[in-house]
């Protein structure tokens, strides 16, 4: 941002002898270090424990799926930006975050072309065609996941934690025994056979990165600590689910039922990492709380009454669409405005 300016005077030897131009860009003249890239790296760090757990309990194939997904996302981002003549911004790592989230939302048994198709949909269709980072309307990874439900049988091949799938072939092979997730039994009105502590630790069947509630929570606390996210969305989202399921349990003791519901399915991953996606969630505090509550209500409604097993993805996608309205609704009262009104009345 250099503009024309006078030269630094060199009235004596102590002063600069170089005829440098002075910058005169406007204030502030200092900036914090945090950048889009450092934020994305923080998100990746926060996701890794839960993802590594996924690799441990679901086998090496989970690692391969992650790699395919991340590399495809980065490649599609670079290629699209190149074709659209936009600056190529793979190095901000936002595509890698999308890739990692997408992989963590897939069952380990999916054929390898699934993450590639998902990456294409997430990055090209949802993100870049809407203008790139910060401009997309819905969460790319979630939209891709829902799109991939078109291949429903491939997308529901969940295995038990510990039944490690190590096949690195395009199709995982027939030796896989699919297992119902705890969420499926909850939705059918029965407490699952897994214990609550299994659910908390992640000894259950499910998508690669969604099973370990405790590690996802740890990642969330890291992000809160780093001020990457605020508490509003995760707390209001999970809190709403907790309150509704506690008040209206479908089976067993209401407290147990509530715990199963909040540890089951993609709620932790969704509430901490997907619903908080910057581009597609409100940036005012009040807007964020309403958004989180909305996500919670829709999630439980779909789980209780819907045809799909998982409500989190749809709930977040629906609330994504309301982001702009929620920001205007949640616009803070300007400094001095409340006081002024009081004075006038």
């Amino acid at each position: 941002m250099k503009k024309d300016s006078n030269k630094i005077s060199t009235s004596d030897g102590g002063m600069s002898a170089e005829a440098e131009l002075l910058q005169v860009s406007s204030s502030p003249h200092m900036k914090a270090r945090a950048s889009t890239r450092s934020i994305m790296i923080d998100v990746i760090i926060a996701l890794l424990p839960a993802y590594i757990w996924g690799i441990c309990v679901f086998g090496n194939r989970a690692l391969l799926i992650g790699a395919v997904s991340v590399i495809s996302c980065a490649a599609f981002e670079g290629i699209t930006q190149f074709i659209l003549r936009r600056p190529v911004t793979i190095s901000d790592f936002s595509a890698c975050v999308t890739g990692l989230l997408l992989a963590m939302n897939l069952p380990v048994t999916v054929p390898l072309w699934i993450p590639v198709v998902g990456a294409f949909f997430a990055i090209v269709v949802v993100k870049q065609l809407f203008g790139g980072i910060g401009k997309n309307i819905v969460n790319p990874a979630l939209a891709a996941r829902v799109f991939l439900f078109s291949w429903a049988s491939d997308m529901t091949g969940f295995v038990k934690a510990g039944d490690r799938v190590n096949s690195l072939a395009v199709n995982s092979g027939a030796d896989v025994t699919a297992s119902a997730t705890p969420l499926a039994s909850l939705n059918s009105g029965a407490l699952p056979s897994e214990t609550i502590s299994d659910m908390f630790v992640g000894n259950i069947s499910g998508s690669i990165g969604e099973v370990s509630a405790i590690l996802l929570l740890a990642g969330g606390i890291y992000l809160l600590f780093r001020k990457t996210i605020t508490w509003h969305i995760p707390v209001s989202f999970i809190g709403t689910v907790a309150v509704i399921t506690y008040l209206f349990p479908k089976a067993g003791d209401s407290f147990d039922f509530m715990l199963y519901e909040i540890f089951a399915g993609g709620l932790m991953l969704g509430a901490i990492f997907m619903a908080t996606d910057y581009a597609t969630s409100p940036l005012t505090s009040a807007g964020r709380v309403i958004y989180g509550v909305g996500c919670g209500v829709i999630t439980v409604s779909i789980r209780y009454f819907g045809g799909y097993a998982e409500g989190v993805s749809f709930a977040v996608l629906i609330m994504n669409l309301l982001t702009w309205y929620l920001d205007n609704l949640g616009m803070p009262k300007r400094f001095g405005e409340t006081v002024k009104k009081k004075k006038e009345s």
Partner: peptide, 19 residues
């Protein structure tokens, strides 16, 4: 070598054209 000369603080000060 200074690249910018600011009168006032770095947050609100005014960059100068001339040393």
């Amino acid at each position: 070598d200074p690249a910018k000369i600011v009168f006032g603080g770095p947050m609100m000060g005014l960059a100068q054209w001339d040393a």
